[in-house]
């Protein structure tokens, strides 16, 4: 085992992909000479050269669409978008082309493209660099949506994403880049199809992904101190959703709280709540709870930003509201 940052794990995945497949190249704003806005691609230009580590103009629609075209032309492009907010400038290409071409062409043109972008808040970057729109993208048929929350997933999701014949979006939570963690020296590709139980428990299921996994795990630790054993499920992939793992957990715990950094209205947490209600209603002892971001554009001031985001105490309170979880205050 080696201690690495989340950023290191992502970079090692990129390096491995570039080494193992000549069709792979990385393009985006400041990925080369600058080393990546969040330093994920630092050093790759020196190792792989400017043909394969391509700095682009600030033209999100053109370079995302060029990634689609290059994928159609036989390449395996990795496109980096600085933040999810900027991806809105490329929404036409992602939704109208990448997600639709295979279907519109009657199965003739698949798009093996990987798009990576930063998502999420927690760094006082204000309303145009901090949102969590991965739930929006999970609405779109034809896309696969990945949200790595662990170092193993940061290291291991890229390879299967590149092997996917269809477009894959990887959302990297900005607050995770500097987080250090243990990574197996032989860490390699991971499965993308299943959610993971990160902590077993019997009393309530906490469902999280990406940046909220840490929040859910902290809440579970504190709940445990109060005698409530929470099971924590990491969704890992928002589309297609691994509903089976969620239902299996809820069948055992009979309660669920979804922890989602997106806004509550029309969110992925709403989708998960609906699926559990549709398919496991009679397993539930309480309505599905949700802890989401406040419905505001993300504020800059630290105390306001903290108040807007899902916190462990919010999760603990939500579990408390379900009632009947056991424990000293349950």
């Amino acid at each position: 085992m080696t201690t690495v940052t989340f950023r290191d794990a992502l970079r090692e995945a990129l390096r491995e992909a570039l080494r193992s497949d000549d069709r792979v190249f990385l393009m985006g704003e400041d990925v080369g000479r600058y080393g990546g806005c969040y330093a994920v691609s630092l050093g790759l230009l020196e190792e792989f050269g400017p043909e394969r580590i391509r700095d682009t103009p600030l033209s999100e629609s053109a370079f995302v669409g060029a990634g689609i075209g290059a994928a159609l032309g036989g390449m395996r492009p990795i496109v980096e978008i600085m933040t999810v907010n900027f991806s809105l400038l490329a929404l036409d290409q992602i939704v109208n082309n990448a997600a639709s071409l295979l279907y519109m062409s009657g199965g003739q043109f698949n798009v093996p493209l990987v798009i990576r972008m930063t998502t999420g808040a927690g760094r006082q970057l204000g309303a145009q660099h901090s949102h969590s729109l991965e739930g929006w993208y999970a609405h779109i048929p034809g896309l696969r949506i990945l949200t790595p929350a662990t170092h193993a997933d940061a290291r291991g999701m890229l390879r299967p994403a590149l092997a996917d014949p269809d477009p894959v979006l990887i959302f990297e939570h900005g607050s995770l880049y500097n987080v250090r963690g243990e990574l197996d020296d032989h860490a390699g590709p991971v499965d993308l199809d299943h959610a993971a139980v990160r902590r077993p428990g019997r009393d309530v299921t906490l469902i999280a992904y990406g940046g909220t996994l840490r929040v859910a795990l902290e809440a579970a630790d504190r709940l445990s101190g109060a005698g409530v054993e929470a099971e924590v499920v990491d969704l890992r992939t928002l589309r297609p959703l691994d509903t089976a793992t969620l239902l299996d957990s809820v069948a055992r715990t009979h309660r669920a709280v979804v922890v989602d950094e997106g806004w509550r209205s029309g969110s992925i947490s709403a989708e998960i709540s609906a699926r559990i209600t549709e398919e496991a209603f009679y397993d539930l002892d309480a309505p599905v709870g949700r802890v989401c971001s406040a419905e505001v554009p993300m504020p800059y001031a630290r105390h306001l930003e903290e108040a807007a985001l899902p916190r462990a105490e919010d999760v603990i309170a939500a579990v408390g509201r379900l009632g009947g979880c056991g424990g000293s205050d349950g």
Partner: peptide, 28 residues
């Protein structure tokens, strides 16, 4: 669309095909 003749659509978003063309040319 038609793969055998490398006919890539058929795009109903005005200017939406230009980035694809740039990417196809980049791959070449």
């Amino acid at each position: 669309f038609d793969a055998p003749t490398r006919f890539y659509g058929g795009n109903a978003i005005v200017a939406g095909g230009l980035p694809l063309a740039v990417g196809l040319a980049l791959a070449d």
